[in-house]
Design a protein around this nucleic acid. Structure first.
Length: 319
DNA sequence: CGAGAAAGCCGAATTTATTG
DNA sequence: CAATAAATTCGGCTTTCTCG
């Protein structure tokens, strides 16, 4: 720090306080120290002292004392003018805080993958906009594994992430709140003859057309496990994709089979009945759906509100 | 290591009384 | 009405200790 700044801090920055300015402003407005003292709920000497201190530190006379009150000097008027600006800025600063603390306005940034966006966000946003119509929700589409996407959270690009998985101990700067767990289910178009069967074995479907997940991605590994556990060879992938939209479109043609998390069923059948789940117990669960947040970060009120809506929406989906 | 609570001390602010 | 003096109260800074 340069000597002159240090000098300024010691002399002005530390000695001239908001309180002193406030007293000066009131005196200037009242035209008398005694009246100002009354309005400030102080004693007259206290006001006199505050002005004297101010004059002492600034090295100039701020008020001309007369028998019937006081009158600001040239210097006094200047400081009063600036002082008014200071308090106006202060008021604006407080207003700004009030605005930011208001959960009915503002924005929240979230990260979410395609399928969970479709399954969860419409219900969440419906609740949110009902409570706070002024809020804007920014949704960043996440296509990579949660362990990679978590970087967006650490870099503060998003307030929270909704995804599948949980964290192990090394990631202790993060909080994962589990919303629900669910099984993986096999689905086919309602037009498929298999979709009406009361009883279907996975072994019967190995030769069918399958939409699978990339084999090294999380759901793909789980599905392979399910086949292997039954001693079955893996079905050939007609299509290999993570895309939920593509699954949706292909399933409506009636030929394909795929595996989806149970909560995605109502998305596929949202507009009209499209798919049926087949009565096959794969015996595997998806990784839990969770809200991920940064442990030592204060969330904005809007983000808190959003999370409440996510919890509520998750409840209604599960039940 | 940093945050929070408790204790003690110093200085500053405030009040009453008084004077110019 | 403002300034000063003296007395008293009050606030805050620092130190110390504990806890996670």
């Amino acid at each position: 720090m340069s000597p002159s700044i240090e000098h300024w801090e010691a002399r002005i920055g530390r000695r001239v306080r908001l309180r002193d300015l406030h007293v000066l402003l009131t005196v200037a407005q009242s035209g008398s120290m005694a009246r100002a003292a009354q309005r400030l709920a102080l004693s007259q000497p206290a006001v006199s002292k505050a002005i004297a201190d101010l004059e002492q530190t600034l090295g100039v006379r701020l008020l001309d004392r007369g028998p019937r009150g006081v009158e600001p000097t040239l210097y006094g008027s200047a400081l009063v003018r600036r002082g008014l600006a200071v308090f106006d800025e202060l008021r604006q600063g407080v207003d700004e805080i009030a605005f930011m603390a208001d959960p009915t306005t503002g924005e929240v940034r979230i990260g979410c993958n395609e399928s969970l966006s479709a399954a969860l966000l419409p219900a969440v946003i419906a609740r949110l906009s009902e409570q706070s119509p002024g809020v804007t929700v920014h949704v960043a589409q996440m296509s990579r594994p949660i362990t990679v996407e978590i970087r967006e959270l650490r870099e503060r690009n998003v307030d929270l992430i909704i995804g599948r998985g949980v964290f192990s101990i090394p990631e202790d700067d993060l909080i994962s709140e589990i919303l629900f767990e669910e099984p993986l289910i096999v689905v086919a178009s309602i037009r498929s003859p298999w979709a009406r069967r009361r009883k279907v074995e996975l072994a019967q479907l190995v030769r069918e057309k399958w939409i699978l997940y990339p084999r090294d991605e999380a759901p793909g590994v789980l599905v392979q496990q399910a086949f292997r556990d039954r001693g079955l060879e893996l079905p050939r992938a007609s299509v290999e994709t993570m895309s939920f939209h593509l699954r949706d479109m292909l399933l409506t043609t009636g030929e394909y089979f795929t595996v989806i998390p149970a909560c995605m069923m109502h998305v596929l059948n949202a507009k009209r009945p499209t798919v049926n789940s087949l009565p096959i117990d794969l015996g595997i669960q998806t990784r839990p759906v969770a809200i991920f947040t940064l442990k030592n970060r204060t969330l904005s009120p809007v983000a808190e509100l959003f999370i409440n809506c996510v919890r509520a929406a998750a409840q209604s989906i599960v039940s």
